[in-house]
């Protein structure tokens, strides 16, 4: 299918008056179209930094990042970013939240509005369009955040620990939801997490990073039956094998 994303020898140094922080070093990997890639690594190793680079919010100190063969520029709407917190605007209703991004760059076309509307209908938010975020549960809010991201039709979804603010039960349910939505809409996604179980449950490939400065330690391709939901994967025997493997990777 071809690579949608390529990183080659990416390095990033943060500068502050007190010190410099070497966050990423010689980091290289590829993501193929349609893949669901998880990036795991110890806390503070540079995962968020990595996503910011791919989103074009940060520029690498050195190295090359390309999306579909093109250098990323800051205004490229090729990536959709989803944060740990849903960041919904409390003063806007759900419909206005979801279509917020369409207002920028003159994307407020009927076609785009229909698309956003369909997503809301399809994923259980049909009756909540005129509700306000405070009236929704944490799981629903995160679904709204995902649809807000999808409504701009990014080629690549970047998810920065989007489940870690949810309680455990909600988290499992929302993982199933998000996974189903992303598969359904045939999106390529990169999920950053420090939760090994979450990575195994959701992805087709896991990239393990070293501690700071982060570089790729290992890449593990997961081999599960295609039709398993994340929740079903957790009950599969392979789940524990992968878990132990990645656990020891991170440990050493």
């Amino acid at each position: 299918m071809g690579n949608i994303l390529e990183l080659k020898d990416v390095e990033l140094i943060y500068h502050s008056p007190q010190s410099e922080t070497h966050a990423l070093e010689k980091l290289s990997f590829q993501v193929e179209n349609g893949e669901f890639v998880s990036i795991v690594g110890p806390s503070g190793c540079g995962k968020t930094t990595l996503l910011s680079l791919i989103a074009g919010i940060l520029k690498p100190t050195s190295g090359k990042i390309t999306i579909s063969g093109k250098h990323i520029s800051a205004d490229a709407s090729q990536t959709g970013y989803m944060f740990q917190r849903d960041n919904l605007f409390e003063w806007l209703n759900i419909w206005k939240n979801v279509t917020l991004g369409l207002g920028f760059k003159k994307r407020f076309t009927n076609e785009n509005k229909d698309y956003a509307n369909n997503l809301l209908n399809k994923y259980g938010l049909k009756d909540f369009k005129s509700h306000y975020p405070s009236q929704l549960s944490g799981g629903m809010r995160q679904r709204v955040a995902l649809i807000r991201t999808l409504s701009l039709r990014p080629k690549l979804l970047l998810l920065d620990e989007p489940f870690s603010a949810l309680d455990y039960q909600t988290r499992l349910a929302v993982q199933d939801d998000v996974h189903a939505i992303i598969k359904n809409e045939q999106k390529t996604a990169i999920l950053v997490t420090h939760d090994i179980g979450e990575a195994i449950a959701l992805s087709s490939k896991i990239i393990v990073l070293t501690s700071r400065p982060a570089t790729v330690k290992n890449i593990i391709n997961l081999d599960f039956d295609k039709n398993l939901t994340p929740f079903e994967r957790r009950k599969n025997i392979k789940f524990n094998e992968y878990f132990n493997q990645i656990w020891s990777e991170l440990d050493s």
Binding site: I57, R85, F104
Partner: peptide, 26 residues
């Protein structure tokens, strides 16, 4: 919230749009 500003930037919002859509209402 800095993260909300970042969110709008990733959506391609201009500075003026960030002002009117986020900073002033917030």
């Amino acid at each position: 919230d800095k993260e909300k500003i970042l969110l709008l930037k990733t959506m391609g919002a201009s500075k003026l749009q960030i002002l009117f859509k986020l900073i002033l209402p917030a």
